[in-house]
Nucleic acid binder design. Structure first.
Lengths: 207, 207
DNA sequence: TGTACATCAGTGAACGCGCGTTCACTGATGTAC
DNA sequence: TGTACATCAGTGAACGCGCGTTCACTGATGTAC
């Protein structure tokens, strides 16, 4: 790739953003975690491999930084879905749809974030953090509102959130892992998955 | 490792079984796909690496052969669970429990079988085949019996089987991928997951 | 019963690969005097 | 206004790694005559 113009003194941090963007673009284009090597990223940015280490401790840290920005995007989309509905149950349902759509639209990112081994995860991105992440707490809050409205079939909103989470995750991760399985049409599949979870966990609105 | 005694003429196939057993043992002990290298397997069997290629085309084929024997074990356990119950709904529920237990007891195998990239899958183990595999067809049949008994809430038994499958998969794969997440107690988690799926898909038995 | 030979199971050594990472460095740029 | 110097962004070359895989081979064993 063409060489990048060297940053001015004090502007070194701008390379960090370029590295993140290049790594993400590479991931999106190749849909392969393996294709995102230190060398490939450096090449794409127009810089030599050792430069990466000025900004990221190691490869895993870089990869998770990329995923974290994707995670933030997911959070934005889930909150947007929640915000579209006054009814708390409808809000949660919309949130589930948005989650599935995000996952299917970003399969390799989804794979890294939710299907990889926790062994590879750098310390600053430990699993526990996921529970505190905005995307998940947003869901817990929304389910909590449904609970407050007396619309939840089970007592514990946190447990209900876990069941919802694993329900949509089951669909997304299986479709990603087994793309050649004779799945139903994707829209039908989403509708049925969401409807099943909804029926199982929520009560209809009292009139 | 100690050297293996060379097979007699005509007995060469016995090495194949030893290789499979060694690879599987390595997978179980290390719980790491990466630890199952051609060299490590050969070393464990007491043979040199090129010998492996007499019996397996390449590494992926070996790994999938291992998984296939595990798959057969899963099938046996699921059928055993089905066979314990006359009531078709109870049979399916028991099948779900057995599935979850198998997955959680064999996390790395489960990861390879259901959470890996389909890119790595050798041709003879393509995803489509999974739909025809005994373990899945057994589930479809059991759901079909529930349907015949008028106990299914949705019309299509195949679709119901898919929903059940992804339901239990969601729980298993998330617990494997995120072991440090604050999950509920595993028994409670199984009970709630299965009960939720059951309530959503099945009708109670008419008295 | 003996011997030459084909076959078969497995070996030893090496290839090439791309990777993550480290090290000592260079040269432009801003700053202090 | 000029100059010496410290700093900073990034370089070039190489390390060591373990891997999957290939190749030409060896030597024991069964078989045909």
């Amino acid at each position: 790739m063409s060489a990048r113009v060297r940053s001015r003194r004090g502007q070194g941090e701008s390379l960090r953003d370029d590295i993140l963007a290049a790594a993400q673009a590479l991931l999106v284009e190749t849909q392969s975690e393996d294709a995102v090597s230190i060398r490939a990223v450096a090449d794409r940015v127009g810089v030599t491999p050792p430069s990466i280490y000025r900004h990221f401790e190691d490869k895993a840290t870089l990869l998770f930084a990329v995923c974290m920005t994707e995670f933030d995007r997911l959070d934005v989309e889930l909150r947007a879905a929640l915000a579209c509905h006054d009814d708390p149950v409808e809000a949660v349902i919309a949130c589930g749809r948005a989650y599935v759509q995000f996952g299917l639209a970003n399969p390799e990112t989804y794979r890294i974030m939710f299907m990889g081994s926790s062994e590879w995860t750098p310390d600053q991105y430990r699993d526990e953090l996921m529970a505190d992440h905005a995307a998940f707490t947003g869901l817990v809050e929304a389910v909590g509102r449904a609970s407050d409205a007396g619309r939840l079939r089970i007592a514990d909103p946190m447990m209900a959130a876990v069941l919802l989470f694993q329900g949509v995750h089951g669909m997304v991760s299986l479709r990603i892992a087994k793309p050649n399985f004779p799945w139903p049409d994707v829209e039908t599949h989403i509708d049925l998955t969401i409807a099943t979870m909804g029926d199982a966990l929520f009560l209809d609105a009292p009139e």
